[in-house]
């Protein structure tokens, strides 16, 4: 989880990723950030996130993203 938060901080350091559960709804990350983020996650966690996983519910919090990674690994 810490590794993930570290990656997320690269895109928007002002967000508290441990508490914020509305990253996408609050537009803290935009859809262009998500492309780079997915590329980073794929590389760092050796998973394959595809277009079907790109829904706000999967990216609204660090916890949700981590759950997605666990599901895919």
């Amino acid at each position: 989880m810490e590794k993930l938060v570290e990656i997320l901080k690269k895109y928007n350091p002002d967000v508290d990723y441990y508490t914020n559960e509305h990253i996408i709804d609050e537009e803290a990350l935009d859809s262009f950030d998500i492309i780079s983020l997915v590329a980073d996650i794929d590389r760092e966690f050796d998973v394959e996130i595809t277009a079907k996983d790109i829904i706000p519910e999967n990216f609204n919090s660090a916890k949700k993203i981590y759950e997605l990674i666990e599901r895919l690994s």
């Binding site: 492309i35 794929d42 595809t50 277009a51």
Partner: peptide, 22 residues
Amino acid sequence: KEYIFYSVAFSKWCLNLTTKLN
């Protein structure tokens, strides 16, 4: 957005390109 943007953006080759650019 759903069927072209996402399909291209999250395809292997595009993600590889993104990684290289990053």
